[in-house]
Amino acid sequence: MDNPICPLCGRPIPPGRQSLHHLIPRLKGGKGGPTVLLHQICHKEIHATLTEAELARDFHTVAALKAHPRLARFLAWVARRPPEFHIKSAGGRRKR
């Protein structure tokens, strides 16, 4: 069976690198709502870049996430990495 494709970076997601993202955060009413399967690194970048409120209000679709300037730069960068690429330690939320 082929690995699923990350809808953000377009790379295959190998086993052990998969992460389920709630398009509307659970704490903002998204429990039981739509989810997408992403690379762990892509999922971590979403939450390092955007707050739960921003995700619920403006970035609750894959298209909106891909259009965010900082995420778009990250996705262009990570798309050039192999599917199993990951960062061992993630930093805190980025300052705006």
Rank of each mutant, 00 (worst) to 15 (best):
H47I: 13
G29S: 06
A63S: 12
G10T: 02
H39W: 03
E52A: 14
L23M: 13
R94L: 11
L55K: 00
R73D: 15
P69F: 11
G10M: 02
H39L: 04
P83H: 02
H22E: 10
I13E: 01
T51G: 03
M1F: 01
A63E: 15
R26C: 14
L75D: 04
R57K: 11
P14S: 07
P69A: 10
A53G: 12
A63P: 00
L50N: 09
A76P: 06
A76C: 07
H39D: 12
H43D: 14
S89L: 12
G92K: 06
R11S: 10
V62G: 00
E84N: 12
S89V: 14
I13P: 00
M1N: 05
P82F: 07
F59A: 05
D2G: 07
L8Q: 07
L71N: 01
S89I: 11
P15M: 02
L20R: 11
R73L: 15
A76T: 14
L23I: 00
P82K: 12
G91F: 07
I87P: 03
P4I: 07
I24T: 12
I87E: 11
P83M: 03
R70V: 13
C42D: 04
C42H: 05
S89D: 13
R96A: 14
C6L: 07
G32D: 10
G16P: 02
L8T: 04
Q18D: 08
P25S: 03
A56C: 04
P15Y: 04
K31S: 15
H21M: 00
I13K: 00
A63N: 08
G16D: 01
A53Y: 06
H47K: 04
R57C: 07
D58A: 09
H21I: 03
A72K: 12
Q18A: 12
L65Q: 02
K28F: 10
A48C: 09
A90I: 14
E84Y: 09
S19T: 02
V78S: 08
Q40N: 11
H60R: 04
S89N: 10
A76S: 14
H86L: 08
L50W: 07
K31C: 05
H86K: 08
C9R: 02
K66P: 06
H47M: 05
K28I: 08
K88E: 14
R26M: 06
D2Q: 05
F74G: 01
E45T: 03
C9H: 04
I24H: 00
I5G: 06
K95W: 08
